[in-house]
């Protein structure tokens, strides 16, 4: 099944927040632009939404010398190996592709939104009109034809690149080594490794909306990995118990039925 695990590297130290990726994504995936208003930020739409699968997040921070820094982060599906969304998806709409990425069969999505609650990065977004959930599929329609995802293709500065998992992880660590300081690789050490990884210039907590320690929520693990088998056991136990009860102890029959089998309205 697995052809080759792909990893997309987002090097935030090369990103100029031109948002070519945000538009290229919409163009390739035929997603509309919707009416917005300026809410006091360059970041628009304010969050990922059903028609916005990738988004540049802008946040202004002042460092310890009171010098301003403007941090840009391209947000979007991280394509986890241990993907909570795939775990909880009741219909199999969310699935792991042969590249290790998380694809989505939109025709199978039933709009239950369970993935939205499960995703540690809060990526899947719901559309009321189609009653379905949407998210980046790393341009599965392109990568299966050996094309780069639309966002990577559009990136002018080389902030985005895609390739074989090991090579990309090495590239990320080489880059971080060169950058020094607080620079770090984000993604490969979480949820069994994401298929989108970042080179961050600053510590993860400096970035808007980026969990410091993303993990499959305990509620999902508790249910899917522990309680689900136990509950199956319990249900099976009830069935088996009833059967055993019937054959060992026997039914609790009224006395006159034992005396007169013709009575009792079955």
């Amino acid at each position: 099944m697995k052809k080759m695990e792909l990893v997309k590297l987002i090097d935030t130290t090369r990103c100029t927040a031109c948002r070519g990726c945000q538009v290229a994504c919409k163009q390739w995936n035929e997603l509309p632009g919707l009416k917005t208003k300026n809410w006091g930020s360059y970041q628009n739409p304010p969050d990922l939404q059903w028609n916005t699968w990738t988004l540049i997040r802008f946040n202004e921070v002042a460092d310890k010398d009171n010098r301003v820094k403007w941090l840009f982060r391209k947000d979007g599906c991280m394509h986890c190996t241990d993907a909570a969304c795939v775990k909880v998806c009741p219909s199999g709409a969310l699935y792991h592709t042969e590249y290790g990425t998380v694809g989505i069969h939109h025709e199978r999505c039933i709009g239950c939104k369970e993935c939205m609650a499960a995703c540690p990065f809060e990526i899947p977004k719901y559309d009321r009109d189609t009653d379905k959930v949407y998210k980046c599929d790393l341009c599965y329609s392109r990568i299966k034809d050996d094309q780069q995802p639309a966002c990577v293709k559009s990136c002018p500065t080389g902030a985005l690149s895609i390739g074989a998992k090991d090579a990309m992880i090495k590239k990320a660590y080489d880059r971080v080594k060169k950058l020094g300081g607080d620079a770090n690789v984000y993604g490969d050490q979480f949820v069994d490794g994401t298929h989108v990884i970042y080179v961050l210039q600053e510590k993860p907590e400096m970035y808007d909306h980026l969990p410091k320690h993303p993990r499959v929520p305990f509620s999902v693990v508790a249910w899917k990995d522990f309680l689900k088998p136990i509950s199956l056991l319990a249900a099976g136990g009830v069935l088996a118990g009833s059967f055993l009860h019937y054959i060992i102890h026997g039914p609790k029959t009224p006395d006159d039925i034992q005396e007169n089998k013709t009575q009792g309205g079955e």
């Binding site: 538009v23 632009g33 300026n38 360059y42 628009n44």
Partner: peptide, 13 residues
Amino acid sequence: WQMWLLEMQPELY
């Protein structure tokens, strides 16, 4: 006139 662009920068600031 281009909704993808207008969505990102919708009005004067």
